[in-house]
Structure formats: C-alpha cells, structure tokens
C-alpha cells in the first residue's frame, strides 16, 4: 500500500470514528474528569465550590453509612450475579431448543428489558408482598410459609435480586447467539465418543460459550454494583419511605441522597470515584481469573 493511500485511509478512519470520540469526550470522559475535580471540593450545586483537599475521601473512610451501603451492595451483587448468569443461561438453552415460533419467544423474553425499572419495581412490590402477594400465595399451596420479602431486613436484598432478574433478557440474547455459534460437528464428535447431554454441556457447550458467559458476569457485576432504579423505587420512593432502612441502603442510593438531598455534590463525587475504583479492581481481578477459564477462538492456548 502506498504511503498516500495509507494516509487517506487513516484520515477516513478518524473521520468515521470522530462522532464517537467527540461524544465520549463530551458526555463520558468530560463529566468523569469534572467529577474528579469536584470530589476535592465542597461543591453544593448551589454555591461556589471551595477546594477541601482530601477531606471528602477522609470522610468516606469514617462514614458508617458508606460501610453499610457498600456491604449491602456487595451482598446484593453476590446474590444477583450468579443468579442472573444461571437464569439467563437456562433461558438461552431453552430458547435454543425452540423450533417453531423462536422469534416470538426471543421477543417475549427480551420485552421485560424494555419495561421501565420503576414500573418493574412497583409491580414486584405487589407480587412479593409478604401478606397478600402472589408469590407467598403460591408457596402457601405447597404448605410453605413465605417470608416478608420486602419488609424483613433479612429478605430485602434477596428480593431486590429477584426483581433485577426480571430484566435478564439482554444476557439471554447474548448467550443464545453464542450457543448458535457452537459448531454442531463438536457435538457430533462428542456423541460418537459416547458423551451424553450433560457431559456435552459441560465439556463442549460451556467452553465454547465461555467468552459470552465471562462477558455476562463482568457486565452483571458492574450493573449490580451500580444498582439504583429498583432499589430506589422499592425502598426509597415517595410512597415507600417507610421501607427505607439500613438493610435496603445500596451505594448508589446513598450517593444520590448526598448529591440531591443533602446538597453535597463534592462528597457524592468522591463516593462515585470510590465506586469507580472498586469496580475497576473487581473487573481487573475478574479478567485475571477469567482468562484462565475462558476459551477464545483462535487464541494460542
């Protein structure tokens, strides 16, 4: 390729990518940098910001509600991520086997993703009601006394995880696409070697879709650590103030309270950066560990 052509192609490439670069700088990188600056100030949204050095970060270490909110969020993530992975994979396997009307079922399972999180939260408050909810009604048919899902501190985070599963359709679509890419020849070869459905699942399907599963785990973890919508609707909305308790306080709700209820945008920015660092560390650890188990097509291993 001549040098002139290469330069032309480089210019064209920059031209095509520039809308994204501009959008990223203005709407992602810019606000991130601004929030980093604000995290070293006492910015209240209303008044002039003054530099406070590391005071906000020192306060983070001493604030007992930060510890409470972080613990709740981590517990929720530990409940949600495995559950979301298993449920999404299970649904994808079922959809993979559907012959007729596959398009309809794919749409049906994806539709909940389009439902506003607030609406889903409100709906599940009724379904999970400990005294008159449908779930406990059904459990009652089998002689099981269901708990107070949304009011018992022990069950608040599990119920939040259940509500979040409602929107697992996005991962289902990704896993389904991965399942469709598993070569049939591999299954046939395994069958010839006498492998049953379970062994084929663990030794053919799972390794071949491990990249998609890993992607799902990483994105579910990030989403879980940033949980806000459902938690706010279920426990902190105008009609649900009575549910707000130490057990239902997740990190993003506490951040929101500081930013928009207590006029502490500087402190809220510090909270946001602490969460960013936590997510970064968790993701790096996941990538390090995940690379040992994930099969990449065409990789040297």
């Amino acid at each position: 390729m001549s040098g002139r052509l290469q330069r032309q192609e480089t210019r064209a490439a920059f031209g095509f990518i520039s809308p994204w670069v501009v959008g990223f700088l203005l709407f992602t990188a810019g606000p991130m940098v601004a929030s980093l600056v604000l995290s070293f100030t006492d910015y209240s949204i209303v008044d002039t910001a003054h530099g406070v050095g590391l005071a906000n970060y020192r306060e983070l270490a001493e604030d007992p509600r930060v510890r409470t909110a972080l613990t709740n969020t981590v517990v929720y993530a530990l409940l949600y991520v495995p559950a979301a992975t298993v449920v999404a994979l299970g649904l994808a396997l079922l959809l993979h086997r559907v012959g007729r009307a596959a398009g309809f079922f794919r749409t049906a399972f994806y539709l909940p993703v389009m439902t506003p999180a607030v609406a889903a939260g409100a709906m599940f408050l009724l379904l999970l009601n400990g005294q008159r909810g449908l779930l406990n009604e059904v459990l009652g048919w089998f002689g099981v006394q269901g708990p107070s899902w949304t009011t018992d501190p022990t069950w608040m985070k599990p119920s939040l995880a259940v509500v979040s599963l409602w929107a697992v359709g996005g991962s289902v679509v990704i896993y389904l696409a991965a399942l469709k890419n598993v070569p049939v020849a591999l299954h046939e070869a395994a069958m010839l070697d006498g492998a049953g459905p379970v062994r084929r699942f663990w030794h053919v399907t799972v390794p071949m879709i491990s990249g998609a599963i890993f992607f799902g785990v990483v994105t579910h973890t990030i989403a879980a650590l940033q949980m806000f919508d459902q938690a706010y609707t279920m426990f902190y909305g105008p009609q649900q103030k009575a549910s707000a308790s130490d057990s239902s306080l997740v990190y993003m709700v506490y951040l929101f309270q500081n930013a928009f209820q207590y006029f502490r945008m500087g402190y809220a920015s510090a909270l946001a950066w602490l969460l960013f660092v936590i997510i970064l560390v968790v993701t790096v650890v996941q990538v390090r560990i995940g690379n040992r188990f994930v099969h990449y097509e065409g990789s040297r291993s």
Partner: peptide, 18 residues
Amino acid sequence: LVVVPVVALAGCAGVGGN
C-alpha cells in the same frame, strides 16, 4: 488537551458560579 476540558467542564458544572 487535559486541562482545557477540565476547566471548561468545571465551569459548566457551576463551579465558581454564584
């Protein structure tokens, strides 16, 4: 490249505005 967006965005966000 780093300083200009920071200052601009800090301004947009209202820092110093009263």
